[in-house]
Amino acid sequence: MIRFSHVTKEYPRTGVALNNASFHVAKGEFAFLTGPSGAGKSTILKLVYMEERPTSGEVRVGGMRSSDIKRREIPKLRRRLGIVFQDFRLLEDRTAEQNIAFALEVTGTPREAIPPKVGRLLTQVGLASKGTSLPRELSGGEQQRVAIARALVNDPVLLIADEPSGNLDERATRGIFQLLRDINASGTAVLMATHNLELVRRSEYRVIEVNRGQIVFDSAEPRPDQPPPAAV
């Protein structure tokens, strides 16, 4: 699903953000990406959805390679991915339904197919009764659910979540995490960047830890000198 081969990303002003990173996330897998702020987690995610290209090395996502993907092909890749952010990135002047429908419209879904799909997605994320609410009328957890519903519009093979619970309280975080688990259980791979070590420890999923631009730990490939976190 995702393969990083000796990927280095260097920014002209801030220097090396990722250094010689190699890892693989399989189809249907759930993996956490952890590490302190500025460690390189978001850079990895941006490289996955090809917002950035590596300075050296290669990123492969769903059969598309960073080395030869053309700019006009990136939308095709993004339609196979779902992306969720800490700040939800909803359009404030549109209702929950309209936010989800918007993603379907811009990807060319036939008009008549949109309302039933929006209804199904709202039900899936537990917001069937909040379709006509504007984002400001929803709690943080509910807004993130709308964002997740929007990320699911194209039935993605991979869901990328960049600190999805960063702005949420404990209860909402648990709800969002359960939703991501359910999505994963239905076959969608999930790559989730998080600071929430408690959440990571409580789960059984794979952990990839990044620090100062380097992958310092991968629970799928434990090193003898660095045992995995106790709860994993």
Binding site: R72, V106, N154
Partner: peptide
């Protein structure tokens, strides 16, 4: 700009 970034994230083409 926000709307544009969302459109791009969900896979809208540049032409769209």
């Amino acid at each position: 700009a926000r709307e544009i970034s969302i459109m791009r994230l969900v896979g809208a083409t540049d032409a769209f």
